[in-house]
């Protein structure tokens, strides 16, 4: 799987994370390393759903629905 360039992702884009969680981008600071995103689902830790967190670029493994 080729790496996703997170700099290209716009707010509102859905992303799939390495642990299977899915999140929606809220803000993209454009540094190529981080995204601010809100969890849509999180099988590992369901308490994260609805929370906004910073997502590290290597954790983004695919685009969501």
């Amino acid at each position: 799987m080729s790496a996703i360039n997170v700099r290209d992702l716009a707010p509102g884009t859905s992303i799939v994370l390495a642990d299977g969680a899915e999140a929606e981008i809220v803000t993209n600071p454009g540094d190529g390393m981080w995204l601010f995103a809100r969890y849509l689902s999180s099988p590992r830790d369901p308490t994260l759903v609805g929370q906004e967190e910073m997502i590290f670029a290597p954790d983004v493994v695919a685009l969501g629905r």
């Binding site: 803000t27 600071p29 454009g30 540094d31 390393m33 981080w34 601010f36 910073m54 590290f56 290597p58």
Partner: peptide, 25 residues
């Protein structure tokens, strides 16, 4: 203009208020 100051070395990231907000892993 920026939302965060991100270190390009290991990726630690700081808000514009100086708080450490992003730590990889």
């Amino acid at each position: 203009t920026t939302a965060v100051f991100t270190c390009p070395y290991h990726g630690w990231s700081y808000g514009t208020d100086g708080r450490l907000v992003g730590v990889p892993y």
